[in-house]
Design a protein around this nucleic acid. Structure first.
Length: 586
RNA sequence: GCCGAGGUAGCUCAGCUGGUUUAGAGCGCUGGAUUCAUAACCCGGAGGUCGGGGGUUCGAGUCCCCCCCUCGGCACCA
């Protein structure tokens, strides 16, 4: 039973005034790993090349008719501060946004993101569609003009929330002058009408908000006696240039759409074309936990409202909103005052010394997905790097490749029939007097393939990556037990056959393991495949070119994509050079 | 303050509705074996009163009560 729906995953669109740091990179890497796993499972074509975006109508071709994968990221550019920042740099808001959006693009290219599109809220395609949505919601009465009353700071020309005003003693934190209660016209969204429906949907769909602790938090704020109020969705346009940046309310240019509402719609505007509309509803919105309320409450309510508008019947709710946690740095919260922010320069330094794949591996396997915040510590990084990569897949491919060069002139020997059981992974090998099952690769592949049939789950990806690690360990154990290096010294021809069998088993198992590693470390695995002449990618020289078949076929033990006897196997340089724990951090 | 999650080996964590053993895994540490490999790999070990106290039970890390500690959320960011 093939997957029935396309896989559509998003990151938040990032605030363009920020400098890219570990938080942005983490979210993007986790989403990227998920997207790559899905492309692997489905055997679909790759993303557009190296950080560019795909033009509408050029979605990945599908090798076998399975629904495709779409990975979206981008930048949020309509905040007032973009205007003031731009001014302080002597640039126009748009030029400043262009410049900073480019920084994010470069960061994501460096981290190996394979997004299919990069949307910016200042793009015409976004602005036009958002304007249409808002007009539809206004026509339906879901967005209406009312009066906003709040505590206003005349000096700062901004409103404070009731809580913030109270904490400040109803005085301006800047000037110390008293805040004034002020009322002015404003557009509101009727969020209050959706409280019951939201509650029902979240209670009835445990997967809608994840992890579960986050879901409980939202439920706690949605259940009576909590009351959902209508939310302001506009801000006034004045003489201040900062207020002239943004999408105008249709038919009322004195008001512009509040930036958060504008931003949320990006998930929809990016796919609201004839070619892409089938991608909706989105499979999963991956976000940081700070913006959970907007994504788990306001956003679905907006979608419910829009869906009721004529022509928008196709607008369903996303499958999952996943709010991950934060990274801390060397045991301490990151803050600008401490100067311990893990910024792009630091990440580049790590990638420079250990490889981008190693950095992605650390982020993807040690990150704060569910549970507690995670620590980015140099000692931990080196530990994980050495244990999983240098001493794991790196060393194992090295020793196997070396023996094939040494004993078989660098060509994969033929597996002797009847010397092992058929199946996936190394099935059995003599272990003392008994036998031991070695089919972790099969388990991992099954887990993954089942993912889409049931429901997407980040945990399955972690299991699969771990499955690759476990399979490598089994290969190492197998080598220690069968001792091919001793078999090689025995003169009998039967020993020669047994040696061939052992090594071809090792190659086949590592090949399967490498498929499971690919989503986390695409370039490194593509490198291994080039050395071993594995035919997994459409273009062996391009890790992003897409797969020639779905995972179930690629990973089949001894299947159509296993290596034929005689295939050249090059050992090459170590894929992951061992790291010295005492060397100072980069 | 209110609501919620959690405190299990040096570190990161598994342990579902109580009884398969003398509480597990990975990493780290330590002893051994081995040499094909990146001083890697493989095997074994050390070993934590399962936050503290009380209770229920034939029996609790696993249920109840109290206390201590850590963490998260408490919105509309106009």
């Amino acid at each position: 039973m093939p997957p029935s729906r396309p896989f559509y995953i998003t990151t938040p669109i990032y605030y363009v005034n920020d400098r890219p740091h570990i938080g942005h990179c983490y979210t993007t890497v986790v989403a990227d790993v998920a997207a790559r796993f899905q492309r692997l499972i489905r055997g679909v074509g790759g993303p557009p090349l190296r950080g560019g975006e795909r033009a509408a109508g050029t979605e990945p071709s599908r090798s076998d008719g399975l629904p495709g994968v779409f990975f979206l990221t981008g930048t949020d550019e309509h905040a007032d501060k973009v205007v003031t920042s731009a001014a302080s740099h002597g640039m126009s808001p748009q030029a400043w946004a262009d410049h900073n959006a480019e920084e994010f693009r470069k960061a994501f290219a460096f981290i190996g993101s394979s997004h299919d599109d990069f949307i910016r809220t200042t793009e015409p395609r976004h602005k036009e569609r958002v304007t249409r949505y808002v007009r539809a919601l206004m026509d339906a009465g879901q967005i209406y003009k009312g009066d906003y009353t709040g505590w206003y700071d005349p000096g700062q020309e901004e409103y404070l929330t009731e809580t913030a005003a109270r904490e400040a003693g109803y005085k301006s934190a800047i000037s110390g002058r008293p805040l004034v209660k002020r009322t002015e016209p404003c557009y509101f969204f009727r969020l209050s009408e959706y409280q019951v429906r939201l509650l029902e949907h979240i209670e009835g769909n445990p997967a809608f908000i994840q992890p579960d602790a986050r879901r409980q938090e939202v439920l706690g704020r949605l259940r009576p006696p909590a009351v959902l109020n209508n939310v302001p969705v506009s801000r006034p346009v004045t003489d201040d240039p900062a207020t002239q940046w943004g999408i105008r309310i249709p038919g009322d240019p004195a008001h512009r759409l509040y930036v958060w509402i504008d931003a949320l719609f990006n998930y929809l505007t990016a796919v609201d074309t004839d070619e892409r509309r089938a991608l909706w509803p989105c499979t999963v919105h991956l976000i940081g936990k700070d913006i959970l309320w907007f994504h788990a409450v306001i956003w679905p309510a907006l979608l419910m409202a829009l869906r009721a508008c004529p022509g928008y019947e196709w607008v369903g709710l996303p499958g999952t909103v996943f709010g991950h946690g934060w990274w801390i740095s060397e045991g301490q919260k990151m803050s600008k005052s401490l100067g311990n922010f893990i910024d792009l320069e630091k990440l580049r330094a790590y990638a420079g010394r250990y490889g981008a794949g190693a950095l992605r591996w650390y982020l993807a396997t040690q990150g704060p997905l569910a549970g507690n915040d995670a620590d980015f510590s140099h000692a931990k990084f080196v530990e994980v790097y050495n244990a999983d990569l240098a001493n794991g897949i790196g060393n194992s491919t090295s020793r196997v490749g070396n023996m094939i060069e040494k004993y078989f002139e660098g060509r994969l020997p033929a597996h002797s029939p009847g010397q092992d059981a058929n199946g996936r992974g190394l099935r059995m090998f003599p272990d003392g007097g008994g036998h031991r099952m070695m089919d972790h690769a099969g388990e991992s592949a099954d887990t993954l393939s089942a993912t889409d049939r049931i429901r997407f789950d980040f945990a399955n990806n972690a299991v699969a990556l771990r499955g690759g690690v476990n399979l490598v360990q089994f290969v190492d154990q197998y080598i220690n037990v069968t001792q091919p290096f001793k078999v090689a010294k025995q003169p009998e021809s039967s020993s020669r056959d047994w040696l061939a069998t052992i090594l071809s088993d090792c190659v086949e198992s590592l090949r399967v393991a490498s498929l499971l590693f690919y989503p986390a470390m695409p370039e490194k695995m593509a490198e291994l495949w080039r050395r071993w002449n594995c035919n997994h990618l459409r273009d062996p020289d391009d890790a992003n070119s897409g797969f020639v078949a779905p995972l179930a076929e690629l990973a089949e033990w001894g299947g159509a994509y296993s290596l034929r006897p005689g295939t050249p196997i090059r050992k090459g340089d170590p894929l992951f050079m061992r790291a010295d724990p005492v060397e100072p951090p980069p």
